[in-house]
Design a protein around this nucleic acid. Sequence first.
DNA 1: TTAGGGTTAG
Length: 749
Amino acid sequence: MTTILSLTSSFKFVVKENTPRRGAKRSEFINQYEPNKQKTFNSGRTFRFQSELSIGKTNLSRQMEDFVSYVESGSVEKALQLFDEMNERSSFLWNLIIRVLTNSGFFEEALDLYFRMSIEGTKADNFTFPFVIKACGGCLDHDVGRKIHSKLFKDGLDLDLHISNSLILMYAKLGCIGSAEKVFDEMPIRDLVSWNSMINGYIMISDGLASFMCVRKMQQYNMRPDRFTIMSTLHASSLVCSLPKGKEIHALTIKSKLECNPMVQTSLIDMYGKCGGMCYAERFFNMISQRHIASWNAMIRGYALNGRPLESFSCLRKMQENGCKPDNVSLINLLLSCSQVGSVLMGKTVHGYAIRMEFLSHIVLETALIDMYGKCGEPRLAELAFNRMHQRNLISRNTLIASLVQNGLYKDALKFFWDIWNDGLKPDAMTITGILPVYSEIAQLREGKQLHGYIVKSGFCSNTFVLNSLTYMYAKCGDLVSARDMFDGIFLKDVISWNTIIMAYAIHGYGEVSVKLFSKMKKMGIKPNASTFVSLLSSCSVSGMVEEGWKYFNSMKSEYGIDPDIEHYGCMLDLLGRVGDLNRAKQLITEMPLEPTSRIWGSLLAASRRHRDLEVAEFAAKKMLPLEHDNTGLYVLLSNLYAETGRWEDVKRIKSLMKSRGLTKTVGVTMVDVKGKTFRFTNEDRSHEHSHLIYDVLDIILKNPRGDLSKFKPIDLLRKMSKSTDRHSVRLARNSGWRFEDLSPFQNG
DNA sequence: TTAGGGTTAG
């Protein structure tokens, strides 16, 4: 027989360990508990097992008393030490030790002790299983969970009230809501906990409506809601973002005399914050006599979620004045406000405070720091914060990848993405949605397709977020057909899916299709948001649909209650500029209720250049210059316009102005991916050995805008090319056995 | 001894 001798406090972080209970042979399992063998768990705890020791001197009843008190107070280490010293362990003692481990979050250890219990000959009973099942849910161990359920079925214990209640929650935690419902339906007797577990189960899978329906059904069975029911339904209200529903539950809380419960109070503030009712949250919060830290934190978060970041900081000050010290959660919530303001200085202050108060390392806080640095435009600081973490998980990696992508550091993002596999982890849907924009930006369709293959293999194909990103990736990489395929394959299309496909057709110049898709979207009952109109107005712009453009622009406020933002005005200006209505464009700028940005003036400038209107161009440039004096594009645009109208003196003036201000022309680079190799080329670039050939084909392509190039067989192209004066390129093409897809512009990629 | 709990990162 082996016993646990001691629990060392060496917090060594073990990334992944295959515990023998997963499909291992029984002998292997027993083997790990050999005398003097040490075992480290994922939690970082290390147990050492030694041969049986006899103590015998201790007064048994006193020992038992101490043991129970350690378990009651959650003193895991002391309880384990005492458990270790006990010679005879009844199922009662085993149940207690498994209970304390599970309730302290040592799920893996609790499961190991459960297996040891049976090996040592003590039978698990109806008191053991609720905690063992909870441990399975805690460490998301689907296999063990199902195996234990089968064993319970065989032993006839599966219908026990407490065991069934635990099974409902375990299945919900594992995302198997169907299994949870089955357990619930088959229960011969259900108590309030059963109903609460099912209600909470729906919350776990983010199904607020199902949760409400379950509450209604529960009331039909004459079950009166308790504080757990109230907390869950408040959570459900936040999930469906329904303030009226939340208020209804607040009324029920008062009726049920549960309003004074601190946890219910926090849930109420949280619900109001998440449903956009901060005034109700404030009113309620001011009524509370004894404010708990969680209530303060819920207020701080509420302000951040409602776009009132500065007030979340004043709330923190008030909290401190009231003698309540901020904790990890307060700082996590504050970081959200820092990101909203985009103030890295405020973020650094929070970071510094966290270090001084010794809140680090804390994985959630550290991840929030990475996110803040990324959103504040400091990807290198995000990376630094990541590198300093003692423990990293998939979420912290995903956050770093998203931060790098947001800030255009695509190569670094890819490196961290591949590191996920190297570190033995598996990317999840969030990783995929984080990294996919990289392939869109660098237009690497081949790699993008490879990732698509991984998505299919990993079963993320039903995830709307993933499919939205794939739609965008294909559209940006020029493969509109695949983009449409992706969109059509989305089972639950959300507003982002529709916005993406509308934008996809817009960027390919098919504005009419975008408009049709918008009508379809409305028919399907999807409510457009501000981004929908950016996509839609861009579509009208690319296709020069002025009337439709105005119609949609005007409907934003009147039909959908959306105030046009600067981006929408920008789209309208692009549209007016494209059709050459410069006067109307100028009028729109003067009439708009927002302060024109350089983007707005830039749009007018580009339009006036296109229509060779020097007067409007100079007007726009004068307005733009104070806002963006270092915008090279502005100077270049103006200089080109002067050149086109033959004002060479002005061209010289602009060029010397650029020189004196230290501005150099930014070169635009186009990248083409051909057979796995990326080629970059710039305007008028003739560095490639086949540049004659390339320019000839380019000429053919340009003469066939919007034409279906696939119908051109290589021989046709060659025939067309043979008419070209450059015989050399044709000969070269024939000799090299050139095919259309072999167009490899410049091999300096 | 039994089950369910507030605010918390992408």
